[in-house]
């Protein structure tokens, strides 16, 4: 399974994180879960992550901040930002190069799958 693209999920809400992880796994990907951006940055999954799914609102570093940080550090990871409070302004701000999607919770599985596929590129399709 090590050739499967790794999807890292960063969300401080435990139940939301587990639910999303379960869904992404059911879509056929390998998943790593992190409670905070700091935990993710510390982990050795960082370099292996093909796509990052991060919550927009988190204590400490937020999803968009994490994405910016990675880009600035020269290790950009395509990201899918998710939020329970979709709003246009935040959406516009969040959509930067490398941010594939900005999705509202609850996530639509097909939409999420399309976003992840677009993030990791056609060469690394998950299987359904």
């Amino acid at each position: 399974m090590s050739d499967q693209p790794l999807i890292s999920i960063v969300d401080d809400d435990e139940s939301a994180r587990e639910a999303i992880a379960g869904l992404v796994r059911s879509l056929g990907f390998v998943v790593a879960e992190f409670e905070s951006a700091a935990d993710f940055l510390k982990s050795d999954h960082l370099s292996r992550t093909a796509c990052l799914i991060a919550d927009v609102r988190m204590p400490g570093m937020t999803g968009p901040e994490l994405h910016n940080y990675l880009t600035a550090a020269g290790t950009p990871i395509p990201a899918v930002l998710i939020t329970a409070y979709p709003d246009e302004a935040a959406h516009a701000r969040a959509l930067k190069p490398g941010v594939r999607c900005y999705l509202a919770k609850p996530l639509d599985p097909d939409e999420l799958l399309a976003c992840i596929r677009s993030a990791i590129g056609d060469g690394n399709k998950g299987f359904q």
């Binding site: 939301a16 999303i20 379960g22 869904l23 329970a84 996530l107």
Partner: peptide
């Protein structure tokens, strides 16, 4: 909403 969203996502996964 928060638990409802999780329920929907979990159900989708299931």
């Amino acid at each position: 909403n928060q638990p409802l969203a999780s329920m929907v996502t979990n159900a989708d996964a299931g």
